[in-house]
Amino acid sequence: MTNFGLDISPRPDLPAVVARWQREISETELHDGYFAILAAADALGCWRWLLDLRRREELATPALAHWMNHDFFPRLVGRFSLPVRIAFLVSPLRAQQQVSDSSAVALSAGSRPEQGFLTALFTDEAAAYQWLAQ
């Protein structure tokens, strides 16, 4: 499924939902994309997600950090039998940057299993899949 500059594919062999942004996006498209990922995960009953951010620029604003922490992440609590595992896949250069509280680097450091999710940052896709399989 492709929407919001995003390609969402199930990986039943893992099982995981793989979401790859294909272009630059707006903050509204980012919100819509995350809800599309959540809908795909719900349909598959899948709590493992790989989010490939390598083809889009960082969208990092205080408003986005607030939305992630106060609107999106709270929707994950109790949604699946286990906390959602979110692997953020980024370029090596981006992994070294920490722009703001809503950057992928900052979000990946904010695992909160008691709030329904675990996150990690990867520059290697195979390592991300290995972490998701745990």
Score class of each variant (00 low, 15 high):
A43H: 04
V17G: 14
A36Y: 13
L44M: 12
N3V: 10
G110F: 04
D101G: 03
D52K: 03
L132A: 11
G116F: 12
P15L: 11
P12S: 12
L44D: 12
V84T: 15
A19V: 06
P10R: 06
A109W: 04
E58L: 01
V17K: 11
V105L: 02
P113S: 00
S9G: 10
A133R: 14
D13S: 15
G116L: 08
E24C: 06
P83H: 08
I86S: 15
S81Q: 06
T61V: 00
W47C: 14
V105T: 05
G116S: 09
A126C: 08
R85A: 12
D42V: 03
S26C: 10
D124M: 07
R94Q: 05
A63T: 03
F73G: 07
L6W: 13
A19T: 04
Y129A: 09
S81P: 06
D7K: 07
A95N: 05
H66T: 05
A19H: 09
F35T: 07
A126H: 14
H31V: 00
D42H: 07
I86K: 13
V84Y: 14
A65C: 09
D32I: 00
A43R: 01
L121M: 07
R85I: 06
H66E: 12
P62L: 01
G33Y: 07
G116R: 08
S102M: 02
I8R: 06
A63F: 13
A65P: 04
R55P: 04
L44Q: 14
D124Y: 09
L132K: 10
L50Q: 12
L59V: 01
F122T: 02
H66V: 00
L38I: 03
I86F: 15
A109R: 00
R48C: 14
A65N: 03
T2Y: 15
S102H: 04
A63M: 10
F122W: 12
P62G: 05
Q134W: 14
F73S: 06
R23Q: 11
E114A: 00
A109Y: 04
A128W: 13
P12I: 04
C46W: 11
S103K: 04
P10K: 06
R48Q: 15
S111C: 07
D101L: 02
G45F: 10
S9L: 12
A63E: 13
A95C: 05
D32H: 05
M68Q: 05
A126I: 08
S26G: 09
H70S: 02
R94W: 03
F122Q: 04
M68S: 01
F4L: 10
E24I: 00
A128S: 12
A36P: 10
E29K: 00
D42W: 11
S91D: 02
R75Y: 12
L44T: 07
A128M: 09
E27G: 01
A41I: 05
Q130E: 13
P74C: 09
A65D: 03
D52Y: 05
S9C: 11
R11I: 13
W21C: 04
Q97V: 05
F88M: 12
Q130G: 09
R20S: 12
H31M: 00
V84Q: 15
F122Y: 14
W67C: 02
H70V: 00
L53W: 04
R11M: 15
A36L: 10
H70M: 00
P15R: 11
P113D: 02
D42M: 08
V17I: 15
L50C: 10
N3S: 14
P12V: 02
R85N: 13
W49M: 14
V17Q: 13
